[in-house]
């Protein structure tokens, strides 16, 4: 009897966590699930609709377009940031005064909030007053991100690369620093070229941190909202309307809670699915 009451009391110890997780994760998620299967009218009138919104979202061209743009964006920034980040990490000095300087410089962009980055680049790239925009136009390039979809994309990607390559750099740098000096000596004794050192020592040793880096960049870039919103609000036209922007437009702009909720869930599942596939592929055949 007494043992049983002691056991019950133990729940109090985990209660704070349970309540916290319930309020910031489980309940909001379930609310979304709830909305996604109902038609909403004013006066809090709800009608059960089953899978209707899911079918509608999955069939809509608008969703296909923004998903495609999102995948393009993520693929491009991963293809730039990961190799660039590794290259910078390789080029950075390993120790001494300059190593610290480089690390601080690298950490700087990461400290700047998303919307500030968006605003900075917006002004920086303005064709009439921005340093970048004006210089480009003075050099003869016709560059105006508010009118040209390509220019808007280039600006968006430049912004993300500027903001987040550092993350890959710092992770790779940490990974490289963890390789014992003896590996490099052994390679030198073997007479291995610097390419062989990279291919057979550094890259395999970086595999784990790169998996983390790619996963983080994948999830973050899939969630990107602020930068395109601050830059052009998804324009010109719909050219930079990525998934999250589209979602907000539906949910808040048009107040279509049902489709927006269904889309959120699909969005969430896509990220989960891609992350899982990626992680499985990267860590395949490791714990035999």
């Amino acid at each position: 009897m007494s043992a049983k009451s002691t056991n019950q009391k133990a729940w109090l110890l985990v209660a704070p966590v349970v309540i916290l997780v319930a309020f910031n994760a489980v309940i909001p998620l379930m609310t979304v699930v709830n909305y996604s299967v109902q038609e909403t009218f004013g006066d809090n009138l709800f009608f059960f609709e089953g899978m209707k919104w899911f079918e509608e979202v999955l069939a809509s061209e608008r969703f296909h377009d923004s998903l495609l743009r999102q995948l393009q964006f993520t693929f491009i920034i991963l293809a730039i940031e990961v190799p660039l980040g590794v290259a910078i990490a390789l080029a950075m000095p390993r120790k001494g005064f300059w190593a610290s300087v480089c690390l601080v410089l690298m950490a700087m962009p990461l400290l700047i909030p998303w919307n500030v980055v968006g605003a900075m680049w917006n002004i920086f790239a303005l064709p009439d007053i921005g340093l970048l925009g004006k210089t480009l136009n003075a050099m003869g390039f016709d560059y105006n991100f508010t009118r040209q979809p390509v220019a808007a994309w280039v600006t968006l990607i430049a912004m993300d690369v500027w903001h987040w390559t550092s993350l890959v750099v710092l992770l790779s740098y940490a990974g490289l620093s963890a390789i014992p000096d003896a590996y490099y000596q052994a390679a030198r004794i073997d007479g291995a070229s610097s390419w062989a050192v990279f291919r057979y020592i550094q890259l395999p040793k970086l595999k784990h941190v790169l998996t983390i880096a790619v996963l983080l960049r994948f999830m973050d870039s899939f969630n990107i909202y602020t930068e395109p919103f601050v830059l052009t609000g998804g324009g010109p036209g719909n050219s930079t309307t990525l998934l999250s922007l589209d979602l907000v437009k539906i949910a808040l702009g048009q107040f279509d809670l049902g489709p927006a909720a269904a889309m959120s869930l699909i969005y969430f599942l896509i990220i989960l699915l891609f992350s899982w596939i990626f992680y499985t592929v990267m860590t395949r055949g490791e714990d035999k």
Partner: peptide
């Protein structure tokens, strides 16, 4: 040379 750590090409 053989080291105290086990140095082999990991992959």
């Amino acid at each position: 040379m053989v080291y105290q750590q086990f140095i082999n090409y990991p992959n």
